[in-house]
């Protein structure tokens, strides 16, 4: 039994290796890209449109609305990054219904990579929005003493993002694996449904936390403590 899909290696050449995480990520990417391409190929701007287009429109508008509700002024600017984050995590959890599939988010490497992206994106958006000086100044708010704590906060929340998603996704897979050995019938199906729900919730949490971090970094003239979210 593997704890992470990283351990399933299909091909390796020195430092380079092709493990299940990468392969399933590619698969997801392919499905998402081709699916989007097929749906948006015959896109309609009229009132009559296909169901798939409707679905994508609902997803896009809901995501945009969520970003706006969190407090980001121009949601369109952040939608590709934050929306893709949500969609990737959600799709990774959703595809667990297929037998033999291992969610890439069940690998700490993937979640760490996503957290790393957020970790880089937060200051990047902050600097774009507020300017380099203003963004750096936010680390010494309200006093200079807070600087180390702010830096620790940045690091720890990135780590928390990675570990939280990994733990939840991995535990789901682990529970299924363990249950299959104890009660091979019916009960794993229930746990699988529960796992789907958990995966969706985790996707939402990951997305909303990233949004909140970016919102906090881009907010002008606002004390950091005021917008610091309460982490679940």
């Amino acid at each position: 039994m593997n704890l992470s899909p990283d351990e399933i290696i299909f091909w390796q050449c020195g430092f380079f290796k092709l493990n299940a995480t990468i392969v399933f990520t590619w698969g997801l990417m392919l499905v998402m890209a081709v699916g989007s391409l097929l749906i948006t190929r015959n896109i309609s701007i009229g009132l009559a449109r296909s169901r798939w287009q409707n679905l994508l429109e609902i997803v896009a508008t809901l995501t945009e609305k969520q970003i706006e509700e969190v407090g980001l002024g121009h949601p369109r600017k952040y939608l590709p990054f934050l929306g893709t984050l949500f969609l990737f995590v959600a799709m990774a959890a959703l595809f667990t219904v297929f037998p033999g599939y291992e969610p890439p988010t069940g690998s700490l490497s993937t979640t760490a990579a996503l957290a790393l992206c957020v970790f880089v994106a937060v200051p990047l958006f902050g600097i774009i929005e507020r300017g380099f000086g203003n963004y750096l100044k936010s680390y010494v708010q309200p006093t200079f003493i807070m600087l180390p704590f702010n830096i620790i906060s940045e690091l720890s929340r990135t780590l928390a993002l990675a570990v939280r998603l990994f733990g939840n996704m991995m535990s789901g897979a682990m529970i299924i694996g363990i249950l299959l050995t104890i009660t091979p019938f019916i009960f794993p199906v229930v746990m699988k449904a529960l796992g789907l729900l958990t995966g969706m919730v985790q996707a939402y949490i990951f997305f909303i936390l990233s949004t909140v971090y970016i919102a906090a970094a881009t907010r002008v003239n606002t004390s950091k403590s005021e917008v610091d979210p309460i982490e679940p």
């Binding site: 990283d6 990468i22 590709p80 969609l87 690998s107 490497s109 993937t110 990579a113 790393l116 992206c117």
Partner: peptide
């Protein structure tokens, strides 16, 4: 696994571009 992390970061960035190109832009 650091290689996987790097690969996933790259994969994610490519996915962001793909989604922007094929999903969000036309839909929006």
């Amino acid at each position: 696994d650091w290689f996987t992390i790097a690969a996933q970061v790259l994969n994610f960035l490519i996915l962001v571009w793909l989604m922007k190109r094929f999903l969000y832009k036309p839909i929006l």
